[in-house]
Design a protein around this nucleic acid. Sequence first.
DNA 1: GCTCGCCTTGACAAGGCTGTCATGGCTTAT
DNA 2: ATAAGCCATGACAGCCTTGTCAAGGCGAGC
Lengths: 338, 338
Amino acid sequence: MSSKVTIHEVARMSGVSIKTVSRVLNREPNVKIDTRTRVQEAVAALNYRPNISARSLAGSKAYLIGVFFDNPSPAYVTDVQLGAIARCREEGYHLIVEPIDSEGDVAAQIEPMLSTLRMDGVILTPPVCDNPTVLAVLEAEGVPYVRLSPDQDLDRSAHVRMDDVRAAYEMTAHLIALGHTDIGFIKGHPDHGASHLRYEGYVQAMTEHGHAVRESHVEQGYFSFRSGFEAAERLLAGDDRPTAVFASNDDMALGVMAVANRLRLNVPETLSVAGFDDTPGAKVVWPQLTTVRQPIQAMAAAAADLLLGGATRVEGEAPPSRLLDFELVVRESTGPAR
Amino acid sequence: MSSKVTIHEVARMSGVSIKTVSRVLNREPNVKIDTRTRVQEAVAALNYRPNISARSLAGSKAYLIGVFFDNPSPAYVTDVQLGAIARCREEGYHLIVEPIDSEGDVAAQIEPMLSTLRMDGVILTPPVCDNPTVLAVLEAEGVPYVRLSPDQDLDRSAHVRMDDVRAAYEMTAHLIALGHTDIGFIKGHPDHGASHLRYEGYVQAMTEHGHAVRESHVEQGYFSFRSGFEAAERLLAGDDRPTAVFASNDDMALGVMAVANRLRLNVPETLSVAGFDDTPGAKVVWPQLTTVRQPIQAMAAAAADLLLGGATRVEGEAPPSRLLDFELVVRESTGPAR
DNA sequence: GCTCGCCTTGACAAGGCTGTCATGGCTTAT
DNA sequence: ATAAGCCATGACAGCCTTGTCAAGGCGAGC
């Protein structure tokens, strides 16, 4: 059983009042330097830790940041948590994770926990970050939130994004630099904002380099392995097939690889394949997938930072936001055009 | 801004004392049925939610359950969270996730948060569940914990496991039933308890069915794609290769599939491949992987249940534990022996 | 030398809830 | 009928910290 040291004992040991200890703990100004030192020594000596419940009951902070997600890829969720925690720990905050079932009654799920926990802020991952009900409840409860890679309504709240257009542009440019001119593309789920942005980057790169975007070499996918597989079957069927395929996420790219394997098309000698996201699966195929890495942990850390006072919203101005850099991860699935 | 209804107003509205409202909220006995009803109506009418900070400050419960993990597979972490939350929500508990860096000073990481948060219990995932320092700190702080799939020291604490031996046995039996007699095996990381158990199940099934375990067809792996890939290269090199390979996790099985592809061995016509874990990757290959599914969410829910009073430890007896059932997931990567 | 105002500190209340104990009414045993 | 006991409820203290406000000390300006 831990000894449960209270602020009282720290105060007694350092010969000051409780309030002064509190001041030191909260890094408040107006404490003489040696008083501060004395208190800090006592804290260390007694191994004192403030009780978070008492703190949040008395004060206004709860020292809790929420992370809401709904069935996104596990790797994404984990990365978000790691990134957010890294920043939170510095300030003594903790992370509450809450899966949201977007199909169900969203308000009923989040309203109770918001009023019970009184969190200091919430990080919203896609697709929850674009759920109007969620945003409305959060605003009604007055809980600050930051959205990760939001799709729409960018000016509605603070957010953190990556430049999908430029990333897709650069991946396409990479293929073009390898000598490819006929590059197939598999679009993502039409409901996902990133889909359009990535397609836009692809088109932009093709056009700027003077290559035609061939309608028949652009397929609709839905971000799933299966949809990538099926799109690839159409794309790679005849002899008039592209020499490279850029799938707008890794799962679909993996589908392309599977089809290529079946058709005995060597990757990357006969066909280059590129993905997007750098999921764990990208390294669990042979050859390993060339893809785009989103700095998810960094994005989550930035989100936490915005919440923890990295930025105060100025009335009348657009809410604070951050745009982070992606990284092109060139592995073995792309090579020179045959 | 939310209106912050307090217990006081509920009491006034229902014409009882604060304490009685508290009794109703905590499902305490000795409240007349119609009093209870009246209070519940007031709670609903006012949309009252108890303040968790006040509750835990006054009482002994914190309404928080921690989940500690250290760099396991993302899919695993996510499943654990989902499973645990499902159970926690029923009781109004919330989940605090805390990544642990086992390489660093573990005590320094968890001791502060334990004394600050005073969680009601902690769920430990592998490999943290076998970290002696973590267990020691938890015990010193008097925080109850449940381990998921612990490796050693089973009687030290409550835990939840799956029967790895039997699962491996059944997978092997499945291959044998398909007519395979020469079944290769790739072992997992020797530091992982599950590795030995799975190998044991394989040996047991082979032996019981009268098939020899050929030394040369058992390879050491380390649970990684790469190690599976390399093991498969050795296993499938000559003409005297097994007709089926059972890799003791999915990542390694994926490595086997990649090698098979390179060698132009058709799966499953020429070679059957089986994995273990049913990771997302299992469905993102073609053909999809036959594997064993661990009921991770159910295991986590069981762990939460043990923590939330599903079982009280009786002094002198072994701590409570649960053994859950696995599921054989037969997909396309296994077929009749040629 | 005196006033003003800032720096430093402390006393005290408040925050919303649960634990403890006391109360009165009613049932059961004697 | 009386004692004993249980049930239903309430009054009040206390959980540990922060916010508010007041007070004392001290240097600066007049």
